Simulated scan of single mutants.
Amino acid sequence: MRPTIACVVPCYNEEAAIGKVVSDLRAALPEAEIYVYDNASTDRTVEVALEAGAIVRHERRKGKGNVIRRAFADVDADALLIIDGDDTYDASRARDLVDLLFEGPYDHVVGARRETVEGAYRPGHAVGNKMLTGAVRKLFGNDVTDMLSGYRVFSRRYIKSFPALSHEFETETEMTVHALNLRLPTAEIPVDFKDRPAGSESKLRTYRDGWRILKMILGLARRQRPSLFHSVLAGLIALISLGLGTPVIVDYINTGTVPRFPTAILAAAIMTIAVLVLLVGYILESFMHLRQEQSRLAHLAYPAPTRSPKGLDADRSAKPTSSADRPEETLARS
């Protein structure tokens, strides 16, 4: 039985670009169902998408994370590809991403952006992506080259184990950390990234959305690495206690008395708080392991993505992959 493939295109006011994205996806994956999720657009996005042959659905709650949450719940497929509707990604590479998912088999394939037109990456976006990706690499201990890419394909078992809790552009961070945390087999393919077409405007706000992504990373660190998070917090609190208590201890050693008794009590109380914070971290670590086990079991409840060799050979003959663009497995090596 041939595996099912679906494409999900989140859109908000992409009248100028959505028609080309849908037509490029249709040419690359003629067997796929293409869903355009309109996020309360005020232009002709819906009409253009329908004219291009897409299935249009609506998510009234603003934010890309809300769209992804809805799409992952509604769309059922063996391979689900997401791509932004702004025509900045090379949609003709969709076949390569999907084929790699089945070849691996992988649960998550990322289209890592490579700039083909100068200025496609705004300076603030490029710097922010490097900083935030670096933070995830430090916290979660694995290779991530383009954490914020909006061009990805997922297996069914990835989708069924992914909670999709974010609301806006921080959803890509949540996707990446989910794969790293469960050590899911993940690969990436370099894809061309270009500037938006004329008449299209970016919805990403560098500082506002960068701050939201940073908060998401810190929140994920608190939830996914509680012992580390609470150890750092406990260490900071302990330093305050030592700063207050050291002079009192020195006075006691020199004079045999405690002239600043309230300060001694305060320092002891703060140190007690530090110890409690540390213990809470270790307790939460146990709960986190339980949650990981549950997510892993939800993941294993579905089979790995597979495609018959005959079907795969036919797809390859339709669109070969150049040797320069052969993918490398960069995330979640198990």
Results as ranks from 00 to 15, higher is better:
E14M: 11
K62Q: 09
V153N: 01
A164L: 02
R222W: 06
K64C: 08
A32C: 04
I270M: 03
F140S: 06
R326V: 09
V22L: 10
T186V: 05
L218Y: 03
G150W: 04
F229Y: 14
V136Y: 01
P305V: 00
K319I: 07
S322H: 14
E118M: 11
T330M: 09
D209W: 06
I159T: 05
E328W: 12
V98P: 04
Y151H: 12
L236K: 07
E31C: 04
T88F: 12
Y89W: 07
T257W: 05
R95I: 11
D195A: 15
R291M: 03
L279P: 00
T133R: 10
A267D: 08
K194Y: 05
E201Q: 12
A314E: 15
F102Y: 12
R113C: 06
G19Q: 12
M216E: 13
I240F: 07
P259Q: 08
T263A: 13
I82C: 05
T246K: 11
V9R: 10
G63D: 05
I265M: 14
P197H: 13
Q292G: 11
P303W: 02
A298P: 01
A238V: 00
D315C: 12
E14Q: 14
L284Y: 03
L29Q: 07
R2C: 01
G85R: 10
G281E: 00
R113K: 04
I83L: 07
K310E: 14
L278T: 00
T171H: 06
L236D: 04
I213C: 04
G235H: 01
L233G: 06
A27P: 04
I283S: 07
H108D: 02
K203H: 14
D84Q: 09
D313N: 12
E33H: 07
A91F: 03
G119P: 12
E33S: 12
E188I: 01
R2T: 14
I253Y: 09
G124M: 08
M271W: 11
I270Y: 01
A267F: 10
D192N: 14
I189C: 02
A27M: 11
D87Y: 14
D86S: 15
Y12Q: 06
L97C: 07
R26D: 01
I217N: 07
T4Q: 10
L228W: 03
V280G: 01
Y151R: 04
G124I: 05
I217S: 09
